[in-house]
């Protein structure tokens, strides 16, 4: 209830009752146990589509998200939304789709930053999500493939993952999701068997390479 209270009226833009009940429903979702194995976990891979903002910087236009549930990517468990004229609804729907699952992005400084700004602007607060950044994790998981940080293209190429349309947030999320499956396979081999262990490793300078 902690972060929901920060989303309540008075601490930001006014929320309509439907949105409020959506957020309450999200808050009621039980927090997933991050110490279970990757193959018992639902991850949500998110990618953003942005455009230039008036005052400089990038503005979120659309989001695409694909779940990796128990290691599997199922087409029914996917999400996309354009912010358009009802950005608060789109952001709430994204939160509902994430449902407190660990969130995976490629290039967190950009994607996580953009998303958190959009949450704050439209819902009045930044939800406390667990973020995994493949840009940081991949060089440590597959040092023999690419040493140091690289562009997403390089990693997709290394594993033969097809990039169907880089302008489409959902299809980009699909490519990242396939990369995440590759990451999970190696993480398990390296003894990082759960999202908790992967999150801890990500924040440990000793484990990380090339960052």
């Amino acid at each position: 209830m902690n972060w929901l209270s920060r989303l309540l009226p008075g601490s930001g833009p006014a929320l309509d009752p439907a949105l409020r009940s959506t957020l309450e429903a999200i808050a009621a979702i039980p927090t997933p146990d991050l110490s279970r194995s990757h193959y018992e976990t639902r991850y949500v891979v998110v990618n953003t589509e942005t455009g230039p903002m008036d005052g400089g910087g990038q503005r979120l236009l659309a989001v695409g998200a694909v779940a990796i549930n128990k290691g599997l990517l199922h087409p029914g468990d996917a999400f996309q939304a354009r912010l358009g004229s009802a950005p608060a609804g789109a952001m709430a729907a994204l939160l509902k789709f994430i449902a407190k699952a660990p969130v995976v992005v490629y290039n967190a400084p950009f994607n996580q930053g953009t998303l958190e700004r959009a949450f704050e602007n439209n819902l009045g607060s930044i939800p406390p999500l667990d973020w995994l950044d493949l840009m940081v994790l991949m060089p440590s998981l597959y040092p023999e493939r690419i040493a140091g940080q690289a562009r997403m293209d390089a990693w997709l190429g290394a594993f033969g993952i097809e990039r169907l349309d880089h302008r489409d947030a959902l299809l980009e999320a699909l490519a990242v999701a396939q990369l995440h499956q590759v990451a999970l396979a190696r993480a398990k081999q390296q003894g990082l068997g759960s999202p908790r262990e992967l999150l801890d490793a990500q924040s440990s300078r000793k484990w990380l390479r090339g960052s």
Binding site: A65, V66, P75, G76, A78, Q80, L170, L171, L174
Partner: peptide
């Protein structure tokens, strides 16, 4: 669940 997202992914399968 978002149907258009599912449709897009199903289309990649097809």
């Amino acid at each position: 669940m978002d149907n258009t997202a599912a449709d897009t992914l199903i289309r990649t399968h097809l």
